[in-house]
Amino acid sequence: MVPRLTGMIDDGAGSFVQLRDAEGDFVGEVRADDEGRFVFHAIPGHWRVVCLTPGRNRRQQEVDLGAADVDVRIPA
């Protein structure tokens, strides 16, 4: 099983959430739920989470993922 990279985006309901690797390559995209939460299944490494929320500025956060699940918060 690969670890889960989960997160919560402040005011991020319905955001388009992209996971990009250390080289910036797009690995996957999900929609945040009505509470702004999202889930990725990724291997350990350095990742970038990019949030595109209609009506808001683009947000991104760097994440280091090890063997265990990680939960991040993307501030407003």
Binding site: V2, L5, L19, D21, E23, D25, F26, V27, G28, E29, V30, V39, F40, H41, A42, I43
Partner: peptide, 14 residues
């Protein structure tokens, strides 16, 4: 993705 190509992952990350 490069991770799938290199055999490190079996499917997209979501």
């Amino acid at each position: 993705s490069p991770e799938e190509y290199r055999g490190e992952m079996m499917a997209p990350a979501h």
